[in-house]
């Protein structure tokens, strides 16, 4: 990989701070958008080509895109410790908030008004998830067979209660085989 490197890589403290700010401000999901703004546009630690490449690794591997991206970018900038501080910065604000939320919920969670509020949020979140799925699908689904893999995986898990890990391994294996590299003459 050749990519434009800044004259000297940022310090660990800078990396931690930049990721902490992104981890604390990326409200409403879509962390990838915040990552691109922070890393490519503002800091210029990466160019778009490198960003998209790291993002495609993040999406293929288990783990959340936001944390996977933090690890990969941190590693590029400052090796192991860069990855560690980037990941910590990304996670600290949300983790603190959600831990506090659990205590607040223990106190006020049975209140009918907070239940009504949270139930409204849950319905809205279903809409959000379906949008995420449609956008993800638009990027990865190319042939009719891909849609069959999607439907089969979803039905197996949601309706036939197949454990996710088996559904994923089975659907993944068949789909990878379907897209296996062919001889050049066939392309």
């Amino acid at each position: 990989m050749t990519e434009p490197q800044p004259p000297s890589p940022p310090s660990l403290r800078q990396i931690f701070w930049v990721f902490l700010v992104m981890g604390g401000t990326s409200i409403g999901g879509g962390v990838v958008g915040y990552l691109r703004t922070g890393l490519v546009v503002r800091q210029r630690w990466l160019d778009d080509v490198a960003f998209v490449e790291l993002l495609s690794i993040s999406q293929t591997l288990p783990g959340l895109n936001a944390t996977n991206m933090s690890i990969l970018v941190g590693d590029r900038l400052r090796g192991v410790w860069g990855a560690v501080v980037a990941m910590l910065g990304m996670c600290l604000p949300g983790a603190t908030l959600m831990t506090a939320a659990a205590y607040a919920y223990g106190i006020g969670g049975d209140d009918p008004w907070s239940k009504a509020f949270l139930h409204g949020i849950a319905a809205g979140a279903v809409g959000l998830i379906v949008v995420v799925m449609v956008q993800l699908g638009a990027k990865v689904l190319k042939t009719v067979a891909d849609y069959v893999f999607v439907a089969a995986t979803a039905a197996a898990v949601a309706f036939f209660h197949v454990p996710v890990i088996y559904a994923m391994l089975a659907a993944g294996a068949v789909a990878i085989w379907w897209h296996r590299p062919r001889d050049k003459s066939l392309k």
């Binding site: 495609s56 999406q59 293929t60 849950a122 979140a125 279903v126 998830i129 379906v130 995420v132 799925m133 993800l136 699908g137 990027k139 990865v140 689904l141 190319k142 891909d146 849609y147 893999f149 999607v150 439907a151 089969a152 995986t153 979803a154 039905a155 197996a156 898990v157 949601a158 309706f159 996710v164 559904a167 994923m168 659907a171 993944g172 294996a173 068949v174 789909a175 990878i176 085989w177 379907w178 897209h179 296996r180 590299p181």
Partner: peptide, 23 residues
Amino acid sequence: PAIQTGLGSAAVGLVLAGAIVMG
């Protein structure tokens, strides 16, 4: 590319299953 595309469709299927269970 095969791994990326193949796991991609399985992943979309799992997100759909999650949406159904949550819905």
